[in-house]
Design a binder for these strands. Structure first.
Lengths: 210, 210
DNA sequence: GTCATTTGTCACCTTGTGGTGACTTGATAT
DNA sequence: ATATCAAGTCACCACAAGGTGACAAATGAC
């Protein structure tokens, strides 16, 4: 009993490494992510990371595929797509945006990755970007035929609103108040959701003075 | 003439260090900012950075105070504050938001710092945050009395719009198209400005059905 | 001139990183 | 029982980072 050698279970070790990546990102942010840190967090020798995954990029890819960071299309479009499509443009767009906000709010790790992609574009962030294939964009393309009907620049307005949601969520990671709105509390997000609904109703209704 | 020793001009070297910080941030982003990189870029021994500034935080503070990254209040409110205040709420808010976007678009270094603040909150970013004192918020507080009049949640709507502008500008640093909008070209930003104007007009006009 | 101060140069240290080779130890099949 | 192979451990490398102390040379005061 000279060494408390590990459980000698490859699957368990590999899984521990994966989970260490997640907890590390969630706790210390993407900044602190490195081979040494991951090995330390997982209580594992870093050489095993190389052996089992190959290196950081492959590890990141495995991590990205193993978890469900990315809001699925169904999560944003809702269960009943028929119902969504039978709504007015304003209602359906507002609903999707709100679903988008809620889905992202549930995923601190996703937010962390988005923040990281904001400051560094390298092979690692590229890997994660390829994993998700930008679900948000895809969802908006889902009902693209409806968008061209309105006379207002619907694309520009939805672009503004989705960008706004992303930014507020990113800022909420370290800031409580954004321009008098509490972007951390549920009440603050109810205000934001209401504002989104108002904007959509006022600007995306057919016949509105664009 | 064994050594091409420097010009032996403290002011000049100190200024060179400051300028090196700027070019380094603009070219390689905040990620690459460090004592060694700065010294290398300025062609100066790093010990002089410690001697003349004390260290990175003090250097950053000096840098923040020496340049005009931050859009001034007048730049966002325009020359004629009286005229601005005599406009309708919708018009004045839209104008300030558009001025905000244009001012930030002219300042790639400011965008770089904002991106950096998104991913790391440490003494360095804190220094820069204290330097600017969040001009944007201050400006919106400038005409706070007008905001409470409308029946819609004006604060929430302006929060959304300013967050949207910030996010689109941050993303424009490394992405061309955001949701079918070209966020790098002037034409794309004209679309965005028009959308902002539409939203303000439709949602901030008194009597609008909030 | 002489001497102290300032400006700049050089050499070094510690720490942490990514990465690799060589080893020990345990399980398993024959 | 033993040979084999995978799982895990240890020791090391090269490199870049932040940081510091000691020294050379130019400037300026007297």
């Amino acid at each position: 009993m000279k060494k408390a050698s590990r459980s000698r279970d490859r699957l368990a070790t590999a899984d521990g490494i994966l989970r260490a990546v997640g907890t590390l990102i969630a706790r210390d942010g993407f900044m602190a992510l490195g081979i040494n840190a991951i090995a330390r967090e997982a209580g594992v020798d870093k050489v095993l990371i190389y052996r089992y995954f190959g290196g950081m990029p492959e590890l990141l890819r495995a991590f990205g595929e193993s978890e469900e960071f990315w809001p699925s299309a169904s999560e944003m479009l809702g269960d009943d797509i028929e119902a969504l499509m039978s709504m007015s443009l304003a209602e359906s767009v507002a609903l999707v945006l709100i679903n988008f906000a809620r889905a992202l709010r549930r995923r601190p790790i996703t937010l962390e990755i988005m923040a990281w992609e904001m400051v560094e574009r390298n092979e690692l962030t590229e890997v994660l970007r390829n994993v998700r294939e930008d679900v948000a964009i895809r969802v908006f393309n889902e009902f693209g035929e409806k968008l061209v009907i309105a006379d207002a620049d619907v694309a520009a307005i939805t672009t503004l609103l989705s960008a706004a949601v992303s930014h507020l969520l990113l800022r909420s990671r370290d800031t409580e108040m954004y321009n008098t709105v509490d972007i951390r509390s549920d009440k603050g997000w109810e205000r934001i959701e209401r504002a989104i609904t108002v904007i959509c109703k006022q600007c995306l209704l057919p016949g509105g003075k664009g």
